[in-house]
């Protein structure tokens, strides 16, 4: 493994850490698809930066993208807060609208210059070792530095507000009654997701971020019973994806981000098949059908009520 390979794995691992800290909250709050929404909603930001400043330098592009990412999550939150639209439908309304704005902007004003979306915002993790900054005389991959800062911020957010986030995630009404502010905490979390997503898109590409936010957290959800364990397992699964995915990509000369995503998905499949309610456990238990009437779930029969 060369130094470049190590850099790639470390950057992916940092992405996994940043995402693993937030992903469980998204999964538990039924907002798993927010990351995907953000990955599309940043498009008008990039186009606007191009139209206004005619630049594709990372800093203004990330700033423009972040502005629209935050706009997207706050818009979703506002539509959801009306109580008239479910959160999944709110996501489905807001991000296609922003994405459409971006596409319109490109075709109307920027079609003559080639604004290559894939390379502008949806970065490629294989190139991270070549983009270095020098800090205190040491050459460091810029993406690694940015992601380390994001990891630190997320860590501070999650540890400082651990109790509050946990309470409002599982029981927003209890949170409100005890004087916490569920709306504010929810917005804070959404903004953190937006910032994490945008800074990671630029480094490692959108699909890897989306995958790292959802899949490790979903895997952890299946195998853990406490929030702390869920976060720890989510980060660990992300790292497994980063390391094993990179090895896989090297072996088969394939897309690094794609291979890492596939490894994470593989972990999920294993957890799903082996989980206490998965097909294996069901097969071992025997397919007993418990009528709904006796408190069983018709689709997933649990243990039969014990006869007294």
């Amino acid at each position: 493994m060369t130094a470049d390979d190590l850099t790639i794995v470390l950057v992916a691992g940092l992405t996994a850490t940043a995402c693993g800290l937030l992903g469980p909250f998204l999964v538990l709050r039924r907002l798993a698809l927010l990351a995907d929404a953000v990955s599309h909603a940043v498009l008008p930001g990039i186009v606007a930066v191009w139209l206004i400043a005619e630049t594709r330098a990372p800093v203004p592009v990330v700033a423009g993208a972040a502005a629209f990412a935050v706009l997207c999550v706050l818009g979703i939150d506002a539509v959801r807060a009306t109580g008239l639209v479910a959160s999944d439908a709110a996501i489905a309304l807001v991000f296609p609208a922003l994405f459409s704005l971006g596409v319109l902007g490109i075709t109307r004003y920027a079609s003559d210059i080639h604004l290559d979306l894939d390379s502008t915002i949806y970065g490629e993790i294989a190139f991270t070792p070549f983009d270095v900054v020098t800090i205190a005389g040491v050459d460091l991959a810029r993406a690694g530095v940015v992601l380390a800062v994001v990891v630190l911020l997320n860590l501070v957010l999650v540890t400082a507000l651990w109790k509050e986030l946990r309470a409002t995630t599982f029981d927003p009404h209890f949170g409100r009654v005890t004087g916490l502010r569920p709306r504010l905490l929810s917005r804070l979390l959404l903004v953190a997701v937006a910032i994490t997503a945008v800074s990671a898109f630029e480094a490692v590409g959108a699909i890897l971020v989306v995958t790292m936010l959802i899949v490790p957290a979903a895997t952890a959800f299946l195998v853990t019973r406490s929030l702390a364990a869920m976060v720890a397992v989510a980060v660990a699964v992300g790292w497994v994806g980063a390391v094993a995915g990179h090895v896989l990509a090297l072996t088969f000369d394939s897309s690094i981000a794609g291979a890492m995503g596939l490894v994470c998905t593989g972990c999920f499949v294993v957890a799903l098949v082996a989980s206490p309610r998965g097909p294996v456990a069901r097969l071992l238990r025997g397919r007993r059908r418990v009528p709904e009437f006796f408190g069983g779930d018709v689709e997933n029969p649990g243990p039969a009520p014990s006869p007294r």
């Binding site: 699909i207 959802i214 899949v215 394939s254 291979a259 995503g261 596939l262 998905t265 989980s275 309610r277």
Partner: peptide, 29 residues
């Protein structure tokens, strides 16, 4: 996937990520 304890949105997200990752791998090939 929804037949596990997972909620619909997570099931959707996992399938989305897995398939798109696969798509990217195929595309590079």
């Amino acid at each position: 996937v929804e037949r596990s304890r997972l909620r619909p949105d997570t099931a959707i997200g996992v399938v989305l990520s897995g398939f798109f990752s696969l798509g990217i791998v195929l595309l590079t090939h």
